[in-house]
Computed example of a mutant assay.
Amino acid sequence: MAEPSGRDLDAMIEAACVDAYGEEEELVGFHAVLADRVSLPFTTQVLGVDVVVEDLDLRPGGGVVALCRRGVHRQALPLLDLPVPSAPPQGWEWIEAFRRWAH
């Protein structure tokens, strides 16, 4: 997968936030786009162990989080802190656009 350019990411940010008024509505817009465009589930490593990202959620005061599972254990991790998987899922470029928007 080719890494999107800054211009590509900026266009994606504009698309996700097109009808939003303010940062909270932009966050809601991004969550909707991420939920629609990122293929779930996918596997990544957190602290050296494989975890399965089962869903993406919007948490009040917490932003967008990845709902991760390893066996019977589950944990929500901020999407901004999620490591890039060795095999990024389809739609990962939208997570990169979200990271650019958040910083």
Rank of each mutant, 00 (worst) to 15 (best):
Y21A: 10
V49G: 06
M12I: 01
L34A: 05
W92K: 06
W92Y: 10
V52M: 03
G71K: 11
L34H: 07
P89C: 00
I95C: 08
P4E: 10
L27H: 09
F30W: 08
R74C: 10
A87V: 13
P41V: 02
L56W: 06
D8T: 12
I13Q: 04
F98Q: 01
L80P: 01
H103D: 12
V33W: 04
V49H: 14
L82M: 15
V38I: 05
H103N: 05
V84L: 02
Q75Y: 13
I13E: 08
R37A: 09
A87F: 08
V46H: 11
V64G: 04
G63C: 10
P83V: 08
L80W: 03
A102F: 14
L40Q: 01
F98Y: 15
V52W: 00
L56K: 07
R100I: 10
L56V: 04
F30A: 03
E23F: 14
T43Y: 05
S5I: 06
H103P: 06
P85I: 04
G63I: 04
I13A: 06
P41H: 03
L67H: 08
M1H: 10
D10H: 08
V18H: 08
L47G: 08
A97Q: 00
M12A: 01
P89N: 06
E26C: 15
G61T: 03
E26G: 10
E93L: 02
V52K: 06
I13N: 04
F30I: 00
E26I: 05
